[in-house]
Design a protein around this nucleic acid. Structure first.
Lengths: 242, 242
DNA sequence: CACAGAGTGTGACAACAGTCACAGTAACAC
DNA sequence: GTGTTACTGTGACTGTTGTCACACTCTGTG
C-alpha cells in the first residue's frame, strides 16, 4: 500500500494542470489594485499596510504551502491558484479536508502563527499558485486596528470549521459511494466539470483503494451522472440521485 | 435502529451523574472571585465588564446548551459541569465530537453569534452545569479592548479545531476498536476511571451498534485494560496496547 | 512497429462492522 | 417471592470495503 502511494506521489499532479492553465505574474510582487480585486472588502489603508510588510511566495504545482510539523510564522492568504488541504496520520495516509480558493485564508496558519505552534495539516498547490505571507506581528496589529481584518479572520475560522464539519459528516455518516459523490461535487465546484484525475488519485484523497473507486465510478457512469475516460472524468449531472 | 435510539434517548443520562456528584450554586449568579478562579487569565476590569452584562444559565442533566438549527445570540462559556458536543446528520444520527470543561468556550457559539447564524452542532449537559452567556455586542467590544479576551477567543478556536481534527483522525484512519479506545481515554480524562455508561450509550456516541461495542469491550477486558460491570466500566490501563 | 509504463476492469477472497434473533442476567417495583 | 425492564452476551448472516492477482487498454518512446 505504502509502495503504491509513494509511486503515486511523484506523478500526482501530472495531469491536473492540463485543464487549468491560467497564467499569472511570475515575479513575486503584487500591487494594491490586484490585491483589492482579490480582497474587495479590505479598505485602502489596510491594503497598504499589508503590502508594506508582506511577501508574495510562488508555489509550483505540488509544492507544499505548509506541512505537518512545520512551524508557521506567517498568516497565509491565497492570491491565486488552488490549494488542497489534507490531514495526514502517522502512517502516511492522507485525506482531503477542503480546498482553499483565491481570497481565502488558511485558518491553521492564523492559529499556529498566533501561538507559534506547529502545523497539524498539509496544504499543497494543485496548480501554480501564489500566496501572501503576512508576518505574525502585523497580523496581530491589524486585528486591533481594522475591524475589516478582524471580521475576515473570524469569518475564515468559521468557514474552515464548517467545511471541516462537512467533511466529517461525509466520513462519519456516509458510505464510500456518497463520499465519492461529495468529493466529485466539490471538485466540480472549484475546478469545473472535467475532472482530470486518475482513479488512483481519487482513491488516495478519499483514503480508499483504486479498485473500489473504479467500481463505484463505474456504477456512477451507469446512472448517466458521469462519463469515464482515461485520466479524466466528464461530469454530466451529479444531482441525479438527490 | 431509530426506534432503539429513541428509546435510548430518554434513558441516556440516567447513570451518568452517579459518579460525578459535585455540587454548585443553584442561584443563577456568579461573583467576581468565582469567575476569576475559572478564568485566572482574565484581569479585573475584564471580569467586571463580563459580570455586568452577562447572565448565568443553569442546565440540568441532559439539557441542551445549543442545538442544531438554533440561532445563537451569545458567546457561551462553561462555568462548571461538563458539556458534550455532538454533530448530527439529517437522519438523527449523532456522534461525539469533543467535551467542554469549565473554563472552555464554545467555539461555535462565538462564530455563530458574531455572524448571527445558525448553530450546526448540538451541546448537551452531561451532569448539572452552568454556562455564562455573554451577549454578542459585549463579546465584540471585549475583543478590541482586551488583549486577554482576544487571545482567549483565538485560543478557543484553535483548541476546538484541534480536538475536531483528532476526532476526524480517529474516524478517518482508525478501526472501530481504536476509536473505542480513543473514546474511553477521553472519557477517563474528563470523568475519571469509573465509566458509568451502558454499551448502548457508547455505541450511540460512536455512531455504531451495541453488539459491536459489546464485542470490542469484551476483547478489551481480556487484555486486562478494563473490567466490565453492569452499567459501568472499570478502567485499569488503557495504554497497554500503545 | 515493439515495448514499457500507467491506467483501468474484474473476479475471488478476507476482514470488519452492522443486523437479527434469542438467551441469560442484574436491578427494581410490586 | 414474581414479574418487568434494561443490560449484556453470542452465533449466524449480510453488505461494504480492502486486498490480491491478473488481464487488458491506452499512450508515448525508440
Amino acid at each position: 500500500m505504502q509502495g503504491v502511494k509513494t509511486q503515486h506521489w511523484f506523478c500526482f499532479f501530472k495531469h491536473v494542470s492540463l485543464s487549468t492553465t491560467f497564467y499569472h505574474t511570475m515575479n513575486n510582487t503584487i500591487d494594491q489594485e490586484e490585491l483589492h480585486k482579490i480582497f474587495p472588502q479590505f479598505e485602502e489603508p489596510l491594503l497598504k499596510e499589508i503590502l508594506s510588510q508582506s511577501t508574495v511566495k510562488h508555489l509550483d504545482e505540488g509544492d507544499e504551502a505548509m506541512r505537518s510539523g512545520q512551524y508557521i510564522k506567517s498568516t497565509i492568504l491565497l492570491l491565486n491558484g488552488l490549494l488542497k488541504v489534507y490531514r495526514e496520520d502517522d502512517e502516511g495516509n492522507e485525506f482531503l479536508m477542503y480546498y482553499l480558493e483565491p481570497g481565502n485564508a488558511c485558518a491553521m496558519s492564523m492559529m499556529c502563527s498566533a501561538r507559534n505552534e506547529k502545523s497539524q495539516i498539509l496544504a499543497k498547490a494543485v496548480n501554480s499558485a501564489e500566496v501572501l505571507l503576512i508576518p505574525t506581528h502585523l497580523s496581530e496589529e491589524l486585528l486591533k486596528k481594522y475591524n475589516t481584518w478582524h471580521n475576515f479572520v473570524i469569518a475564515s475560522y468559521r468557514a474552515r470549521f464548517e467545511e471541516l464539519l462537512q467533511t466529517l459528516d461525509s466520513i462519519a455518516f456516509k458510505g464510500l459511494d456518497e463520499r465519492l459523490l461529495f468529493y466529485l461535487k466539490r471538485h466540480v465546484k472549484v475546478s469545473g466539470k472535467e475532472i482530470r484525475l486518475s482513479h488512483q488519485q481519487i482513491a488516495y484523497e478519499l483514503n480508499s483503494s483504486r479498485e473500489v473507486i473504479s467500481r463505484l465510478l463505474k456504477k456512477l457512469e451507469q446512472t448517466g451522472a458521469i462519463r469515464l475516460h482515461r485520466n479524466y472524468i466528464e461530469v454530466h449531472n451529479l444531482n441525479i440521485l438527490d
